[in-house]
Design a protein around this nucleic acid. Sequence first.
DNA 1: AAAGAAAGTTAGACGGGGCTAAGATTATTT
DNA 2: AAATAATCTTAGCCCCGTCTAACTTTCTTT
Lengths: 154, 154
Amino acid sequence: MPRKQTTKTPPRRPDSDRAHSSTVEDYLERILELINTKGYARVVDIAESLQISQASVTNMVQKLDAEGLLNYERYRGMILTTAGQTLALNITRRHQLLTDFLGLLGLEDNVIYRDVEGMEHHISAPTVRAIEALTEQLKRQPALLERVRTAAQQ
Amino acid sequence: MPRKQTTKTPPRRPDSDRAHSSTVEDYLERILELINTKGYARVVDIAESLQISQASVTNMVQKLDAEGLLNYERYRGMILTTAGQTLALNITRRHQLLTDFLGLLGLEDNVIYRDVEGMEHHISAPTVRAIEALTEQLKRQPALLERVRTAAQQ
DNA sequence: AAAGAAAGTTAGACGGGGCTAAGATTATTT
DNA sequence: AAATAATCTTAGCCCCGTCTAACTTTCTTT
């Protein structure tokens, strides 16, 4: 193997790129969903929804409180702050959009669910807009969609 | 807040769901790319490509060797095993597909790059097929694409 | 063939996010 | 109002993937 070349370990890129981790987005999404459906989000419900232990939820909720994404009162409950709501709505919107889009392509629900769960954290605003626009157009092209579904069917 | 309900912390889901982490996929993808372009993948190059320290690369490469994804010889170099190649090709294909697809929608290169980098790890085989089929169809619909691009342009 | 430079490795630490076990608090039964 | 059940919290641990500092090996120069 040859040598010689610009070397040296490169400088680290700061993580201010995405303000919040996928994990944080997941929590907020579920919390909002619980609030919308049951009126409140309890630790036990969040744990159930995310399939993790209650202890982990308590930990994270305390962190989310510290980050100003929700107001949390020990043993009592939590509500989303404006910042938290904004984030939760944002991720929810991305989730819904991707779900609709993949549904249009004829994918199975469980496949959609899994893929969306992963992708939703990595789709930027411009891409959201583009896929929204595409979805709009596709809805008016049933013949095209039919061809896609057929072709994709293994 | 109400109580009463099925309780108990749920059982953990085993991580055998996705055999390899996004991180592993990222490494393999870069290693394959380096091998294809320069003929070999050195620790220093992988580090540069991934923007992480050489030490981290050495660590991971040893782990990839242990997992049978590549054969690694201390101080000397590495080559992908068949398993490693398969995985690398697979992720590369997903990367390319997503890049093409988003490109079709008229998104900017840097946006595409960032989003694809994140999404490529979360797109299952069926979804790959569906997007492939969709891409095929879209290429034949310049007018539709034009409408999408225009609409997406904020 | 030294000496210096580049590349690679090891050791030890750290943050994120998960877990279990045990204890504290709140709600529900009796 | 006890007693019991459900929920929540804390403490301590673990794994992953990253880092820095120091050291070793290999390559390039001279």
